[in-house]
Amino acid sequence: MQATDTDLDGLLERSPAPVPARTLITDPDGLFPRHYNRNSFMFPHSIGAADGFTVEGVAALASRLPQTDEYVYWSNGPIDVTARWEDGRAEKHSLQDTIRNIASNNSIVILKHTEQDPVLGPILRQFLAEVVERSGQQMRDDVVVGEALVLIASPNRITSYHIDAEANYLVQLVGDKTLNVFDPSDRSLVTHEELERFHDGDYNGAVYKPERQSDAQTYDLRAGHGVHIPTGAPHWVQNGNNVSIALSINYELNSIDRVSRIYRFNNRIRRYGAAPTAPGVSAWRDKLKLAAASRLLRVPNETGTAATWTP
């Protein structure tokens, strides 16, 4: 029996045509595979306020997350480029008050594991997947787990100088900032001893050297663009004169886990007067240290047990 026009109209109302998948990242010059976890670079993307990343949307997201340190971090009051992560947390405002008044309270809020959120999670998981897809098999074979953090910060707020244990893609959604990224391979900038302390749990381990500021690659990061920050690349941020909403798309990597365990082992034996060789200098020493570390050390995991996304 042939369907009438009325029947077809009803069928279309009940079963709308599928919408083609939206591409979030473009990479016409092949920057993702060429510079993967080695060099910083800027790239365009298509996520923004229209996808729910507004002050109100971030406040709603924060209310849906567990109210524990594993999921939420915030800091109130002025800091400078040398500040430690614990600064601005002694007498802080509530999380919701901080977000509600973010335009005037000189604060930053970091919401973690947001790829699991029922509302914003789907687009964040797609972004996590597209980064890996753009970077190719080298990254697909390297990734252990991925995580999406949402960051909201006051006008002119500084994010202090630091390094990360993960490969990071800082993605600007609303507002703008100046991002300073330094060479991750320069051991005169971040010494092996600083890396040992960092990988052994001191997340303030990298020390800002103002005389080296001119060595930074400086990005004018605006909504619609992101920057890849390789593992261990020192960086700091100065927000523009507006509220900033951004993503920090992070990946724990097998290749970095190995180096991290060696650095942590080196830090422990340095306390007893040893002068350990750095990772990569001696293959047989690295092998022995990894074997010893697997027996003696519990390697800290900054993302904890909550990170679940895998490619």
Rank of each mutant, 00 (worst) to 15 (best):
L12V: 14
A216H: 03
N106P: 06
N76G: 03
I102R: 03
S46H: 14
N301Q: 15
S282E: 08
P118R: 02
G232D: 04
A50T: 12
W74D: 03
E91R: 00
L24M: 06
E194W: 03
I47M: 15
S46N: 10
S260I: 09
S260K: 14
G226F: 09
S188L: 09
D220S: 15
R295V: 10
L95S: 10
D183P: 00
R187S: 02
I229S: 00
F198Q: 00
G121Y: 08
G10H: 14
E13I: 13
T310D: 06
H228K: 00
D51G: 15
P276L: 10
V55G: 07
H45E: 08
R212P: 01
R285V: 15
L61K: 00
L173M: 12
K112P: 00
A291C: 08
E133W: 03
V174W: 00
N266Y: 04
I163F: 03
I110C: 12
F265I: 03
V190T: 14
Y73N: 02
D97K: 05
E91V: 00
R258H: 12
G146S: 09
A83L: 07
W236C: 01
A206C: 05
S248K: 04
V190R: 01
D141G: 05
T178H: 12
N101K: 04
A148S: 15
G88M: 06
T4S: 14
G146N: 04
A275T: 13
D257K: 14
E194M: 07
W284V: 13
V207I: 15
W309S: 11
R285A: 15
N250V: 11
E13N: 15
S160I: 05
L11R: 10
G88R: 01
W85S: 03
S63H: 07
Y219V: 09
